[in-house]
Design a protein around this nucleic acid. Structure first.
Length: 936
RNA sequence: GGGCGUAUAGCUCAGCGGUAGAGCACUGCAUUGACAUUGCAGGGGUCGCAAGUUCAAACCUUGCUACGCCCA
């Protein structure tokens, strides 16, 4: 197959991807091979490929393709995440566009709509990952809500509950009034906003005066339960134990002593609202309030509701907590105005306030007192910390360990329940604490009065209930307690003569990260014991952005170790973010995102991938630099043209895996270069230095192979006729090109597969080729010979350019005192020296003229007679510069060697090298000085 | 407030004890012959600042400055 003149990435990308996928190339049967496993961070099913995915997946694909080339049973697990909030929001937005809302439907109806959306529009990103060339195991594509995975999620919930590591608790949560769900600490983003600091006077109950408090949240005074002062604060010591008559509500609240009050801040006294502030919650507990007694004054959307003491004036009820668009007034405004009118507003200051926002909704988070499910993260974190300390998990780069430890050691209980419909529904059923009490039909804001059944399915919940309640009454599991149809109830009562016991299931779903934490084993069949699970757990590497270290990586470590008794992966590789060209974070709202698919369209997937690898150095973010992507497209074109050149010179794919026998120095030299490249590449792979890998292979292809090797073996044109390439070079070049293609394949899969096949009939695709073994050796004689040739040609070109001698000018060279080895080299390399150096011949005698240009190569002075074309002044200054350069190095080395301390204390090899370098530089300077003298 | 990272050529980045490199950009030259998405040659850096350790520091230590991120 003749290689096309132009390299068109788009044409080959689609072709080879389809070929690989349809032939099952991504997961060949290799039952006896060493397994190698990576699980892909499941992208949101709503997602589309952004530049960060391109980086993350390119790195993984490089590792997987490399392992596959090494003959391993390489498995790259792929799937998508149901992404609870994100997906529910997408579908809700669609409904809104049709003037509908989620609550127009039953839960089941809505969930059916989400599934429908998922089938139709979900998973766009999986097609985009294919465009990037990712060689995932699509045949076993997973979804975090597929049947098997859901089973794993439920099992984990039940087991953690039974082990006491998961519990229901009433405490303050981060409540997102926009999404109307609890979220975890990690989903809260603290931002600084310009706010105000209101100073209020609270009258003492006994009428003896006032106590001043300052607050950034005046509206919450409707639920104040105390005023706190610091116990060491003498100004207030006499007030502790007295009561305050709270304005507006008239509630009587105590003045308490608590360390939380900062004497330096404001008046030193603070209002305490345990139901709407995390610090105040703790103060309230210390003051003796039970969580169940703490006042709640807001509903799920942030509107005022009556507190349990009924003291909030009616006109406040239903007001939003603070200003929202389109609302004429709000609780904050009303409270401030009322306090002002009462003469209790002392002053208002401007102040920068640390304010929590929901990372998805952008709403101000409200600390809200609810019952939620929590995972005892502290207990689970301990072995996960130990795993990193012991080296069972190797975090690369190591600098992230400290961040990991710091977070894990201070980890808080993880709130895992979400008030959403889309997700893994919590497998908990509630029933009456006893069958005489049916108050359980009230809302579920309290634990009291309910019996909890945690079970893997309804049947088991039923069985547990039967055991608990006995069989004297029927037990009915209801979707909603009040929705039971009358006929059913009649039937039940008719049958048993008594009212049934009603259970109903928890309405909430689990945090999406609760399920994705199980990805490394849930995707391999767990809880069933499969051979896949056996072989591929622990995974080898996890590649992720550091931004999900806590969200995902740490939780995988915790769950994996807890349930599998082994770490989920041996190495955790963390990479940075891809930033915009100016270094700012890319975001849709800023409009500075770069679409990886656009880059693929423009430069090809191979170029984008190579860019990602080349830019990925450890511990640093990547700044987008499109010119470099273009540069790597040029690199691919270069390779393409090199292959065309090879093809037109009778070079084809090699039949040999080991290096062919070679006599010619140039061939022995390039074989050595391949060996060196493989060794360097292997080292870079072992160290996860993606930039190093890219650098090594780039220079091998561009410099050694294209710029020198192909030029050196290129047949000459004689009388306008192109000569034949010698057979040995054809064979060696074919082998070298094959090694290059294989080594480059993980980085540039498409072009390498195309050229692999274009260059010959192959028994297998390159995706299944063999990674080169550095079995051949570097031939020192060949290196010396080719170095001499390259150096001579380079220096000849160089002096011509500097002396304004047209590069095409053909010259003869004289070496008056050649080393014997040089004569032999020149004999063997005459053709190359002529073609590339434009040196027609060498004479081993002094030249007759003083109009000369001279270069020093190795230990030889090569002299070119240039009567009529040389500018001697220019040559003098050129040589003078060269002398200066050589002398400078010589003198520096001499200085070092004359320092007794250096010779005595430095490593012997450093001294040895300094001596050798000094001798070389001294000789070079000497020869150049002699050359200058010859010019007269 | 605590922690982490970064500061090297105009730009984007390697190098992390033996005296500075790459890509892009720039300058000059070249070209029937794989490749203008090219080739050859070249210019360009007191490696943020200061002190210390060392025979030797861009690299190690300390401090400072600037920028970025994370946690509170």
């Amino acid at each position: 197959m003749t290689i096309d003149k132009t390299f068109d990435p788009a044409a080959i990308e689609a072709k080879w991807y389809a070929h690989w996928e349809s032939t099952g190339a991504f997961r060949p049967e290799r039952p006896d091979a060493e397994p190698y496993t990576i699980v892909n961070p499941p992208p949101n099913v709503t997602g589309s490929l952004h530049i960060g995915h391109a980086l993350d997946n390119t790195l993984q694909d490089i590792l997987i393709r490399h392992a596959r080339l090494q003959g391993k049973d390489a498995l790259w697990v792929v799937g998508t995440d149901h992404a609870g909030i994100a997906t529910q929001m997408v579908v809700e937005r669609q409904l809104n566009a049709r003037q509908q809302k989620r609550t127009d439907f039953t839960r089941d109806e809505f969930i059916a709509k989400v599934w429908e959306w998922k089938e139709e529009s979900g998973g766009e990103i999986t097609g985009q990952l294919r465009r990037l060339g990712c060689s995932m195991d699509w045949e076993n594509e997973r979804f975090t809500m597929d049947e098997g995975f859901s089973k794993a999620v439920i099992k984990v919930f039940v087991e953690l509950y039974n082990q006491g590591l998961l519990y229901r608790d009433k405490r303050l949560v981060n409540w997102d009034p926009g999404l109307k769900t609890a979220i975890s600490d990690l989903e809260v983003e603290t931002r600084e906003i310009n706010g105000k600091f209101w100073h209020f006077k609270y009258p003492l109950e006994d009428g003896s005066g006032f106590i001043s408090v300052a607050t950034t949240r005046p509206e919450t005074m409707l639920a104040d339960m105390a005023v706190a002062v610091n116990p060491s604060d003498e100004r207030y010591a006499h007030l502790v134990g007295k009561n305050v008559r709270l304005p507006i509500t008239g509630r009587l609240i105590p003045i308490v002593a608590d360390e939380h009050a900062d004497p330096e801040l404001g008046s030193g006294a603070v209002k305490v609202t345990p139901g709407h502030d995390f610090n105040d919650f703790e103060v309230g507990k210390r003051a003796g309030f039970k969580a169940s007694e703490m006042f709640n004054m807001l509903d799920g959307e942030g509107r005022v509701v009556q507190t349990s003491d009924g003291l909030i004036p009616q006109d406040y009820i239903g007001q939003y907590r603070f200003g929202i668009e389109g609302e004429p007034t709000n609780a904050r405004k009303m409270v401030v105005e009322a306090m002002d009118a009462l003469g209790f507003l002392e002053k208002v200051e401007d102040r920068v306030i640390q304010t929590p926002f929901g990372d998805r909704s952008g709403q101000v988070i409200e600390p809200w007192l609810t019952d939620q499910w929590y995972v005892d993260a502290e207990t689970l974190a301990k072995p996960a910390i130990e795993a990193v300390r012991s080296g069972a998990i190797d975090i690369v780069p190591k600098s992230w360990e400290k961040t990991y430890f710091n977070w894990m050691e201070n980890i808080q209980p993880w709130c895992v329940s979400r008030q959403l419909w889309w997700g893994h529904r919590i497998p908990v059923w509630y029933g009456p604490i006893s069958y005489d009490d049916d108050k359980y039909q009230a809302n579920f804001t309290s634990l009291e009065g309910y019996k909890i059944f945690v079970a893997e399915d309804e049947a088991e919940a039923h069985a547990q209930a039967l055991e608990f309640y006995g069989s004297s009454r029927p037990i009915i599991i209801e979707e909603q307690p009040l929705s039971i149809s009358e006929p059913e109830r009649l039937v039940a009562e008719a049958s048993f003569g008594k009212a049934p016991i009603r259970l109903h299931r928890d309405n909430d779903v689990l945090d999406t990260w609760f399920s994705s934490a199980l990805w490394p084993f849930g995707t391999l069949g767990w809880p069933d014991q499969s051979s896949e699970l056996d072989r591929h757990y622990p995974n080898d590497v996890l590649v992720s952005g550091f931004d999900i270290l806590f969200f995902w990586d740490a939780r995988m470590a915790m769950q994996g170790i807890h349930f599998m008794k082994e770490v989920p992966w041996k190495t955790l590789y963390l990479h940075g973010l891809v930033r915009a060209a100016d270094g700012s974070k890319m975001s849709k709202s800023k409009g500075n995102t770069v679409d990886p698919l656009g880059l693929i369209d423009q430069y090809g997937a191979d170029a984008l991938r190579f860019f990602m690898a080349a830019m990925e150095s450890q511990g640093r973010d990547i700044k987008m630099d499109e010119s470099r992507v273009a540069g790597y497209r040029n690199f691919a074109t270069k390779l393409w043209n090199a292959a065309r050149f090879a093809q037109s010179n009778g070079i084809s794919g090699s039949h040999s895996i080991s290096a062919p026998k070679a006599e010619l120095a140039v061939n022995r030299w390039i074989i050595g270069e391949v060996v060196g490249t493989v060794e360097k590449l292997n080292k870079a792979f072992a160290e996860f230095r993606f930039d190093g890998m890219a650098d090594v292979i780039y220079h091998m292809v561009f410099d050694q192979f294209c710029d020198w090797y192909l030029e050196l073996i290129k047949p000459a044109f004689v009388d306008g006729e192109k000569g034949e390439m010698d057979a040995e070079s054809q064979i060696v070049a074919g082998w070298v090109l094959d090694q290059i293609l294989v080594m480059l394949h993980p980085f540039m899969p498409f072009i390498t597969e195309e050229l692999w096949h274009a260059l010959g009939e192959r028994p297998y695709d390159i995706i299944h080729a063999n990674w080169p073994e550095p079995s051949a050796t570097v031939d020192a004689d060949a290196v010396r010979e080719i170095d001499w040739v390259i150096d001579t040609i380079s220096k000849t070109r160089s002096f011509k350019a500097e002396l304004n001698i047209p590069p095409g000018t053909r010259l003869t060279a004289n070496i008056a005192d050649p080393q014997p080895s040089t004569i032999a080299i020149i004999e063997r390399q005459a053709a190359a020296l002529s073609r590339l150096g434009r040196i027609d011949s060498f004479a081993f005698a002094p030249v007759e003229t003083n109009n000369i240009a001279q270069i020093v190569v190795g230990g030889d002075t090569v002299v070119f007679a240039l009567d009529g074309i040389i500018d001697l002044d220019a040559e003098r200054s050129r040589i003078t510069k060269a002398i200066e350069a050589a002398a400078k190095e010589r003198d520096a080395l001499a200085g070092r060697l004359s320092n007794a301390a250096f010779v005595e204390k430095a490593k012997p090899e450093a001294v040895e090298k300094a001596r050798a370098d000094h001798a070389e530089k001294a000789s070079e300077a000497e020869r150049l000085t002699a050359a200058l003298a010859r010019l007269g």
